[in-house]
């Protein structure tokens, strides 16, 4: 199970590709790919192209449902999804809408 991630060009914010082709700020809102072929098709499409001036560094990551929530499986990606583990009051984890807040 995979999602597509990147950093937003303007401010570096970590984003994931949402179901409607827009980039979203919460991993739980990301479009989940079960099929490798479908994932590759989107990765090669105009939707995620850096030429659209929206994001940089597009790549896929592994996710899983943990306690009912979509969570990146690798620690690095989990940290990207929340913020620095040493500063819980910084990054996405500190936002009111965050499940970790």
């Amino acid at each position: 199970m995979k999602v597509i991630t990147a950093n937003r060009l303007l401010d570096g914010e970590v984003v994931w590709l949402g179901p409607d082709g827009k980039w979203v700020e919460v991993v739980g809102d990301a479009r989940v790919f079960e099929e490798a072929s479908e994932l590759q098709q989107v990765l090669q499409s105009e939707t995620v192209s850096e030429e659209r001036q929206e994001v940089v560094g597009v790549y896929e990551i592994e996710v899983a449902y943990k306690d009912g929530r979509l969570t990146p499986t690798r620690l690095r990606e989990a940290i990207r999804a929340l913020g620095p583990t040493t500063h819980p009051y910084l990054g996405k984890q500190a936002r009111p809408e965050s499940p970790a807040a």
Binding site: N7, L9, L10, D11, G12, E13, V14, E50, E51, Q53, V56, G57, R76, I79, R80, G83, P84, G91
Partner: peptide, 28 residues
């Protein structure tokens, strides 16, 4: 020029690095 699309990320990256600007996990 980067924000207007005249420069691609590939072209811009060495320029920003020459000015100390990296892209890290959460932000620049």
């Amino acid at each position: 020029r980067r924000l207007s699309g005249d420069l691609t990320e590939e072209q811009f990256k060495p320029l920003r690095l020459m000015n100390g600007l990296y892209l890290q996990l959460h932000a620049y």
